[in-house]
Each structure stands twice: as structure tokens, then as C-alpha cells.
Amino acid sequence: MPDCDLAKTPLRELNAMLHSLAPSTNETHWIVTNPGGKHAIACGLDAPVAIGIQGHVGYYCGGMNKQATIVVSGNAGVGVAENMMSGEVRVRGDASQAAGATGRGGLLVIEGNASARCGISMKGIDILVKGSIGPMSAFMAQAGNLVVLGDAGDALGDSIYEARLFVRGSVASLGADCVEKPMSSEDSSILNSVLKRAGMEDSVSVDEFRMFGSARRLYHFHIDNVDAY
């Protein structure tokens, strides 16, 4: 089990080591200590390894992740798991702005709260937030599922193209073209599978959520939607 102390090892060295891991590597479990809020920790991984980060991380931790499982035992800065392709990033504390931004796949779990613009421009990622999310979340979301066990801030799903937004608590307000939708059995089973993958299926029930998505009124430029442009 390789151990990397970021108080001693330069970040560039850690990331270079992680990038050079072969798919069949035996070094499958890494521990990173003293992250100290540094940026771009464990970004750009592409191997089925587990990285445990003990402490708080800065911007873009786990950015563009593929395959790897990254667990931050602390808080995460701006853009955690941005543009994630696959794998899993889990934040035991809170996440800053733009968590999971533009993510295309994989699972992002925030065990605390996520602040503004969580899931902005999401393109297929699944995001589960145990706490609440801030304003302008899922702005311009295109695909994927955002599951929030707490509350959602203002302008949820503004200018959404597609994606499913499941919220258990209150929604401060909905953004342009985002509406509440009836949950079909397919939707519920998708929600259930996200809860299951995040290890939450026993703590909450699918029935406690409401679902929001695109009204599709902005799909085409039209004079009647002029307030939204």
C-alpha cells in the first residue's frame, strides 16, 4: 500500500506516479496524507485503483477521473471530480462550488453539503449529495442524475437540456425551463440504483423524493421564450 505524504512529496511527483500505473498494477490502494488544500490532487487518473486522501483538498481533486475510486476524508474545493468519465469520487465532508461540473460518467458522492453550481453542465454523471446543494445547481445540465437528500438552493436546473434532478427536501426556486415531473417507474429505478451505488438505499426511500427536469421549451429559439434568453 503506497503512502504519499504531500508535505514531503511534490504533487507533480504523486500525479506522475498515479498516471504511470498500468491497468494491471498491484499498487491498487494509495494513501495520501497532508493534502493541505492543494489543487489538482489525483486528477487525470485512468486505472482501477483506490486513493484515500486524508484531509481537505483544493480545486479539481479527482478531475477527469477514469476508473479510480478516490475518497476524500475532508472537504473538497472548487470543481471536485470535474468532467469525471467513470469511477467514483467520494467526499466525506463538504464540497465547494461546481462539484461534478461537466461530469460524463461515474459516481460522485458528497456526504456533507455542496455549494453553488453543483452538477453545472453535467453530461451523464451521477451525483449524490447527502446534505443540501447551493444555488444555480445543475445549470445547463445535459444528462445524468443529481440526487439531493437535503434541500436545493435557488434556480435549480436553470436552462437544463436534460438530466434528472431528484430532491428530497425543499427547492428554493426552479430556474428557467426546469419543472417538476412525475416520476415514472424507470425514473424510480434509476434513483434507486444511484442510492444503492452510493450505499444509501437503506437510509432513504425513493418515495421521499420529487423529480425535476427539462420542460423542453428552450429547445428551439422562439419568440415566446424571450425572457429566458
Partner: peptide, 8 residues
């Protein structure tokens, strides 16, 4: 502005 400034 960033957590780094608080870490110590």
C-alpha cells in the same frame, strides 16, 4: 479565498 490559506 481557498482552503489552503486556512489549512495551517
Amino acid at each position: 479565498s481557498e482552503y489552503r490559506a486556512l489549512a495551517m
